[in-house]
Amino acid sequence: MPLLALMAVGLVAAFQFGPVGEHLPDLGPSERSVSSLGRQPVLSEEYPVFGSTELVTHLERGMLAHEEHIEVSSWAQDMDPEQILDAAQEAGTQNPYIFTRGWRVQTFGSRTTVIPTYVYAEEQSAQRRVETREAVARGIASADVLRATTDAEKAARIHDFIVTYADYDESALTAIDRDLDFSLVAQSQEAHGILVAGTAVCTGYAQAFVAMAEEAGLDAVTVTGTDSLGLTGELHAWNKVLIEGRWLVVDATWDDPIGGPDEPLRDYFLLDASDPLLATRQADTEWAVAESLDSFGS
């Protein structure tokens, strides 16, 4: 079982930097809702959006376009700033093509906007999206995912491809622990880290699974929380995937046998949330907006 690493989630007052998916060094609408049967990704130009509410998908589109100010005035009439920041947090957690590290809500008169803090400059973000999408397509083809006859088999081929292709990024883990090397740490949290660079920590594994699942026509989400079995602290990230109407747990990170056999494990594949192996694990409430959490069996 590999070591764990998920960066701390910081909650800051409204109108300041909002919930962030990482704790990193400071470097100076389509209508759709989640149902119990899952969600269908909607393409924003060539990149999908995954949000469980109209506001989340709207924010995703703005972040994919690298907008400096994303207009949310119509939602702000009925929501407080924390709810808007929660939607931004879901967008940043669930979309593997978005590279942000925080948000703030700004209101002037009747106009309210979300101001993202992007990890990369616009051109670099665009390049990473292209590279990630191309790597997803290569992975799907390499694993022969689309020839699978069931959703469970598709999920298995994606899981095994990620575990076999990627190596857990122990250098990034050290950097996270010591607050070092921003670029290495940022990459370790991305699907790009797994699918392009071939290495990341748990968040990268989870985002890679979501990206490949979407390409294969599966519904999947990244879940954040804690697991007391983690050797470097409790924070962790994993996936849920919808199989025959049930959201089941997949954890490619913990099925990657560091220093062990080359073959991927299946210990943490398609587990029911009540499985004894998950007794030490607790999902938090940061990865989806409050009204949607129950739709994923949370």
Results as ranks from 00 to 15, higher is better:
Tyr205Asp: 10
Arg281Phe: 00
Gly297Asn: 03
Ser30Ile: 08
Ile140Asp: 04
Ala91Gln: 05
Ser73Gly: 04
Gln94Asp: 09
Gln40Phe: 07
Glu215Tyr: 13
Ala126Met: 13
Asp272Gln: 14
Leu195Tyr: 08
Glu45Gly: 10
Asp177Ala: 12
Leu271Tyr: 05
Arg39Ile: 15
Ala5Asp: 12
Thr100Pro: 01
Leu293Pro: 01
Glu82Asp: 07
Glu60Gln: 10
Ile162Val: 11
Pro116Asp: 07
Ala141Met: 07
Gly259Thr: 07
Leu11Asn: 11
Ala216Tyr: 04
Val289Trp: 13
Thr150Ser: 15
Asp251His: 00
Thr149Tyr: 04
Gly245Lys: 01
Arg101Val: 01
Trp238Arg: 00
Gln89Cys: 11
Glu54Trp: 01
Asp251Trp: 02
Trp247Ser: 10
Glu31Ala: 12
Arg111Met: 13
Arg133Tyr: 07
Gln89Met: 14
Asp284Trp: 08
Leu229Cys: 00
Leu184Pro: 00
Leu27Thr: 09
Asp169Gly: 04
Ala213Asn: 08
Arg61His: 03
Ala65Ile: 00
Glu215Trp: 03
Gly92Glu: 04
Leu271Ala: 10
Leu146Lys: 10
Gly102Glu: 10
Arg129Asp: 04
Ser73Met: 02
Ala186His: 02
Glu244Thr: 06
Ala220Ser: 14
Ala208Gly: 01
Ala290Asn: 08
Asp144Ala: 09
Leu277Lys: 15
Val49Lys: 12
Ser44Thr: 08
Gln207Asn: 13
Leu229His: 02
His192Met: 03
Ser171Asp: 15
Met1Ile: 03
Asp160Arg: 15
Thr253Pro: 05
Glu22Gly: 12
Met212Arg: 03
Asp284Ile: 04
Thr117Ser: 06
Tyr165Leu: 12
Ser183His: 10
Asp179Met: 07
Glu71Thr: 00
Phe269Asn: 10
Pro264Gly: 15
Trp238Leu: 03
Met1Val: 09
Phe269Gly: 09
Asp219Arg: 02
Leu59Ile: 09
Gln83Val: 12
Asp181Thr: 10
Val56Asp: 14
Ala8Gly: 13
Phe269His: 11
Ile98His: 02
Ala283Phe: 03
Asp227Thr: 05
Val105Glu: 05
Ala152Met: 13
Ala172Thr: 02
Ala290Ile: 11
Thr285Ile: 12
Arg101Glu: 15
Ile162Thr: 06
Asp275His: 15
Ala88Ile: 09
Ser33Pro: 00
Leu277Arg: 14
Lys154Phe: 04
Glu153Gln: 11
Tyr47His: 13
Asp86Trp: 00
Arg133Trp: 11
Gly28Pro: 10
Gly62Asn: 06
Ala65Phe: 00
